[in-house]
């Protein structure tokens, strides 16, 4: 009797343990399979860009070779010609100016608006907040015609300063919405404690809310940066001379002439245009995660 009862607990956990290990192995296998699949899927276009940008025009003209590999040696000619013989650097400079201004304007407007709408309860604040978000749902492909009239009437047609004016119509509503959510998630006792400590509304915003909501502010900044850097419809409609053009439209219009596609330079331009967002994402993502996990462990 005693041997039977002793043998049951000895074998059962072993079986359970073995099957747990087996199911864990399967889960890991499936995870890695899909991760590798998605990595290949998403990395194929950048890889193609890199490969094409490093090829000579001659190799690209030879349709016999496999386009995914380089056969005639690596060259930086595409980058050299792009940087020295085209207006690419002007587009780059214009894009940086527009993006920096748009991110700054967006953050000032949306942080102040979100603080007012999220924390300072007043009559109609929730309707106003919903209204702001609804404006985000109107696509720029619909807005650009009336916007054209406005930009033209204030004399900013064919000027990248016009972009500084119109891009915030895309960025402010969504960033305000993100920030309202962040500000509302901060316990109300925090502003009450600050009020009792003697802070005014602006001190409360700058000394308490902005530092506490920094992850949200960075998320909003990333959004504003991405929208501004990658905007296509507005510059396509409002800018037509090279010295005012931005990267997205400028690269395409200057490197595609009729049915002639300068693939090497297009890919080199796309790579260079993608570099700043990549660098900034990498830097801010670290900061973002650090902000979220600060002090999470006891020590």
């Amino acid at each position: 009797m005693s041997t039977i009862t002793a043998s049951v607990p000895a074998t059962k956990p072993m079986r359970t343990g073995a099957s747990l290990r087996r199911s864990r192995r399967w889960a890991l296998f499936a995870s890695y399979f899909f991760l590798i699949l998605f990595a290949i899927f998403f990395l194929a276009p950048p890889y193609y860009m890199v490969v094409t940008a490093l090829k000579t025009d001659g190799e690209m003209a030879k349709l016999a070779t496999n386009p995914w590999f380089i056969y005639d040696g690596v060259t930086l000619d595409q980058f050299r010609i792009l940087l020295y013989n085209t207006d690419f650097l002007i587009f780059f400079k214009n894009t940086i100016i527009v993006t920096v201004c748009v991110v700054a304007i967006t953050m000032v407007v949306s942080v102040l608006a979100a603080f007012a709408l999220g924390r300072m309860r007043f009559w109609g604040s929730s309707i106003l907040a919903t209204g702001i978000f609804l404006t985000y749902l109107v696509p720029d492909t619909l807005l650009f015609i009336p916007m054209f009239q406005i930009v033209k009437s204030i004399g900013l047609l064919n000027s990248y300063w016009g972009m500084v004016l119109v891009y915030p119509t895309l960025t402010v509503p969504f960033c305000t919405w993100i920030m309202i959510g962040y500000f509302q998630s901060i316990p109300k006792e925090l502003d009450e404690a600050a009020l009792i400590d003697g802070a005014g509304h602006m001190q409360m915003l700058f000394k308490i809310f902005i530092p506490v909501a920094l992850p949200g502010i960075i998320a909003a900044m990333i959004f504003a940066f991405t929208v501004s850097w990658a905007a296509f419809v507005y510059p396509m409609a409002f800018l037509y001379s090279s010295d005012q053009q931005v990267l997205t439209v400028g690269t395409v219009t200057s490197l595609i002439r009729g049915d002639v596609y300068k693939w090497g330079m297009l890919m080199a331009g796309a790579l260079l245009a993608a570099a700043p967002p990549l660098v900034i994402y990498a830097f801010l993502m670290d900061y973002y995660i650090a902000g979220l996990t600060a002090g999470a462990t006891k020590g």
Partner: peptide, 29 residues
């Protein structure tokens, strides 16, 4: 307003400023 009443309040959820150290929290006011 609360700041002119010369009162101090301790809240149920502590309401400490999460981005400040203990010393900064105490000295903020």
């Amino acid at each position: 307003p609360p700041k002119d009443r010369d009162i101090a309040m301790v809240f149920q959820n502590y309401a400490l400023y999460p981005h400040m150290t203990v010393a900064e929290n105490m000295s903020f006011g």
